[in-house]
Design a protein around this nucleic acid. Structure first.
Lengths: 294, 294
DNA sequence: GTATTTACCTGACTTAAGTCAGCTTTATGA
DNA sequence: TCATAAAGCTGACTTAAGTCAGGTAAATAC
């Protein structure tokens, strides 16, 4: 390779600024200055609180106020005082505003499609984009508690099954693998953690109480796009915090010899290998960790 | 996957605009407004002609003039009338300008490094970035004639050898594969084409005269980052043009059964399979194409 | 040689964006 | 209860960016 790493990185910046610079200026096509358009779009994307908007767009309080006034007199947004704190204001789109917002959405979609459509290996490209976006947005990764039946959790779990099936060469059967029923992985019996990076589900991890002070960690999965960012470690740490809150003192988990990265993680974070404790045919290694009560 | 293709694409735009927006505003740290800084950087990157600068930065003639005046009074650039056309002006950095420019370079490198350094699978990330940048900059791909010993050609050829070695599971031996010596692939006996995308070598293709009006196509390679963009077809078309200019009427090439994409390309673009014409142990299929003289 | 075009420059202007001090209203803590 | 802080608004300002109509000098066309 004749280009060094930094040059390759900066090559991406150039490509995207050229491209998204065009995207930004396409926003001018609807007659609003960019600042006003940005505010309208942020509101359309669900930001409601004025303070939240200001932080997100990094705008001065006075400027923000004026931009909101512009949109208000145009009739695309409506503001009212917050119920909880009458000093704060909440903003929402009017019917007209929804309409205007959808025009911007359409523009963005068009420009995305125009790039995607002229490239034949779409999935390869999208996976590369997922990876780049996730690494760049690394600081925005959010871990939250979600319901086991949340579609975002489901998509992670499905990806987990697919991956295991691929590694083992046979269809992974979740029942054989000891799939805990959903109830076991939501409060009060357990918890299911979901990691999101700007709308994309990139990882999950579940905890179920086994009885008494014993818990089991299940469904630990991190998307290929998010590997190498220390996400599994973060998920593990959070799961342990939840375990302590549930009053658990011992955690167990099983894993396979082929998942070497996972095993290294467990070994380096206080888990020790123990005897087989279940009859999961996919598992070859069993680990245990004692938790200090909070 | 809960996100559709367009959302995944737009996720990248957001990530990079946030990131490179930060990059842009980091340029403000040196005290110059962004417009002036952009002009300085474009000059540092080798743009010399005022008209070229204006087209590249998409600036109005008057505004451009004023920005240049600002930089000139600051002492970082010098302008003079062009030797060929005294109406035109050429710009260059002064010693002070070089110094200032290198500060911006340093800033860009720092911000690139700060992202790269906190991610463990650097090569995977860079390959994803190569792909994304190449697809976005698809319209900027340039095919030029290069010397067989040009380091950019060498890096392509090395990648070609590595890939073939991987596919065949053994070390590919270029001598067994009938590597034509460099002289055979430069004028007047042949040609070596190089495809570049914003500084990154992404493909090559060589032509050597076999004697009389017979030529052979060798070293056709396209980087994984550029597959699916129709680059191999473009390379093939250009090689045929060069072949005609060299007075060749028949082209031959050999390929392996494992390179199915290559074979499909040949079959769909006027090549027909022929008998083995050499003793290259890596080759299993042989093709020929007759050219209509120009 | 003269008319036209081209490349760049200058001055006068508009708009967008951002800053800052001070204001009102509401919440909060001693 | 009263001082203080917080959230948002308004007015006055600055700077950056961009537009446009001329203007000059050089090149090119007729």
């Amino acid at each position: 390779m004749t280009l060094d790493q930094i040059s390759r990185f900066r090559r991406l910046s150039r490509a995207v600024t050229t491209q998204t610079g065009a995207l930004d200026s396409s926003f001018l096509g609807l007659g609003r200055p960019l600042g006003v358009a940005r505010v309208l779009n942020a509101i359309g994307q669900g930001k409601q609180d004025v303070a939240e908007l200001r932080a997100y767009l990094q705008l001065d309080s006075g400027l923000m106020s004026r931009l909101l006034r512009t949109l208000e007199t145009e009739g695309v947004i409506a503001t009212k005082a917050s119920d909880l704190d009458a000093r704060r204001r909440v903003v929402c789109l009017t019917a007209l505003g929804e309409e205007e917002f959808s025009k911007y959405e359409e523009l963005s979609n068009q420009s995305a499609l125009s790039v995607l459509s002229r490239y034949s290996q779409t999935e390869v490209l999208l996976e590369a984009m997922d990876l780049v976006a996730t690494v760049l947005g690394r600081d925005q990764i959010e871990i939250t508690v979600a319901d086991p039946e949340d579609p975002r959790i489901q998509s992670c779990v499905q990806a987990y099954y697919d991956e295991i099936s691929e590694i083992f060469g046979t269809r992974f059967d979740p029942v054989l693998g000891g799939d805990p029923e959903a109830d076991a992985m939501r409060a009060p019996r357990g918890v299911f953690l979901l990691a999101m990076s700007d709308g994309l589900p990139i990882g999950c991890c579940a905890l179920k109480r086994q009885g008494g002070a014993l818990g089991e960690v299940k469904r630990m999965w991190v998307s290929p796009a998010a590997r190498g960012l220390g996400l599994s470690k973060r998920l593990m740490t959070e799961i342990e915090t939840h375990a302590r809150q549930l009053g658990l003192t011992t955690l167990q988990l099983d894993t396979n010899g082929k998942l070497t990265a996972a095993r290294r993680l467990y070994e380096s974070s206080g888990w020790r290998e123990i005897e087989r404790y279940n009859d999961n045919p996919y598992a070859e290694h069993f680990f245990e960790k004692h938790l200090d009560p909070a």
